[in-house]
C-alpha cells in the first residue's frame, strides 16, 4: 500500500529526514516511536503533502503510484489521512460545514452526488458516536475552544467520516487522560478493516496497549534505526532509547 524509499526531506537548508525506508501493507498497524525531534511529525507532514518541507530525494508510492507530485487534497482523496499532533483551530468555520465540504469533495471524486443535509447529518451523528462526541460540537468552530482531548477525538471523528485507506495518527495519545485515550483507541479499532492500514506515531507504550501494532519502528535523527515486532515497544518502555541510539 505504502512504499517509502530512501526519503530525504529538508526545511530550508536543514535536512530532517535522512533516508527513510518503510513499507506498509493493507491490514497492518505500524507504530513509529522515537524521541522528540526525531522527525516523526515531519515524516507525517511530508506524507500528507505539506509544502513547507522539500523532498530532496527518494520516493513515496501509494498503491503503486508516485504521490510526490500530488497536492494535499489529492492525497486525501487518494485515501491518506493525517491525524494532526496539534489540530488547527479555525474560528468561523463550523465543524459541520468543514466536514460536509470535505465529504462532498470525496464523493465528487468518486462520481457521487453530494449528500443532502439530512443524509449528511445522519452520518455525522453516527460517526460522532464512534468517539463519544457530543452532537453540539458539530455547530462549533473547528476545534475552537476544544480541550486537548476533544481535539484528538475530533481528528478520529474526521477519520471516521473520510474512511481513509491509510491513516497516520501523529501522537494522537499525547495530552489524553486514560478515559480519552480509551475512547480514541476504541474509535481507531472500530474503524480498522482488513483493507486499510494505520501508522500510529507515539512515544509512549501506553497507547499500544489499546492499539496493538504488528510492526514497531524506531525513528531517530531522521532515520529508522530499528524495526521489530510489538515487543520492541515494551522494551523501549523499559530501557528507553539510549541502547538503540548508542548500540
Amino acid at each position: 500500500m505504502l512504499n517509502i524509499k530512501d526519503l530525504h526531506a529538508s526545511i530550508g537548508e536543514k535536512e530532517i529526514l535522512k533516508g527513510i525506508n518503510l513499507q506498509v501493507k493493507p491490514g497492518e498497524i505500524h507504530a513509529i516511536m522515537g524521541p522528540n525531534g526525531s522527525g516523526k511529525s515531519t515524516l507525517s507532514s511530508v506524507l500528507a503533502g505539506r509544502d513547507t518541507y522539500t523532498v530532496t530525494s527518494g520516493e513515496i508510492e501509494f498503491e503503486g503510484k508516485n504521490i510526490l507530485e500530488l497536492s494535499p487534497e489529492e492525497r486525501s482523496i487518494a485515501g491518506i489521512f493525517l491525524g494532526f499532533q496539534y489540530p488547527i483551530e479555525i474560528p468561523g468555520v463550523t465543524n459541520v460545514n468543514f466536514m460536509r465540504t470535505a465529504v462532498n469533495e470525496h464523493r465528487k471524486a468518486k462520481g457521487l452526488e453530494p449528500l443532502n443535509a439530512a443524509a449528511f447529518l445522519k452520518i455525522m451523528r453516527e460517526k460522532m458516536e464512534v468517539v463519544e462526541m457530543n452532537p453540539s460540537f458539530s455547530s462549533r468552530g473547528v476545534n475552537v475552544g476544544f480541550s486537548g482531548g476533544e481535539k484528538k477525538r475530533n481528528e478520529i471523528f474526521q477519520m471516521a467520516m473520510l474512511e481513509p485507506k491509510l491513516a497516520i495518527l501523529d501522537e494522537t495519545d499525547s495530552g489524553l487522560d486514560v478515559d480519552a485515550l480509551r475512547i480514541v483507541a476504541t474509535g481507531v479499532n472500530k474503524l480498522k478493516r482488513p483493507d486499510n492500514a494505520t501508522i500510529v506515531i507515539t512515544h509512549y507504550q501506553r497507547l499500544l496497549d489499546y492499539i496493538v501494532p504488528d510492526i514497531v519502528h524506531i525513528l531517530y535523527n531522521g532515520q529508522i534505526i530499528k524495526t521489530a515486532g510489538k515487543e520492541l515497544a515494551l522494551e523501549v518502555e523499559k530501557r528507553g532509547y539510549d541502547w538503540l541510539i548508542n548500540g
Binding site: 500528507a48 503533502g49 505539506r50 497536492s71 494535499p72 487534497e73 492525497r75 486525501s76 482523496i77 489521512f81 493525517l82 494532526f84 489540530p87 488547527i88 479555525i90 474560528p91 468561523g92 468555520v93 460545514n97 468543514f98 466536514m99 465540504t101 470535505a102 469533495e105 470525496h106 471524486a109 468552530g141 473547528v142 474526521q158 473520510l162
Partner: peptide, 23 residues
C-alpha cells in the same frame, strides 16, 4: 496552517481559501 488543515481533508485550495474568507 488553517489552509493545510482544510486541504489535508480533501478540500481544494480555492475552496479552502474561500472557507477561510467566509469565516
Amino acid at each position: 496552517n488553517e489552509l493545510f488543515y482544510l486541504r489535508s481533508r480533501g478540500i481544494p485550495k480555492k475552496e479552502a481559501q474561500l472557507l477561510q474568507q467566509q469565516a
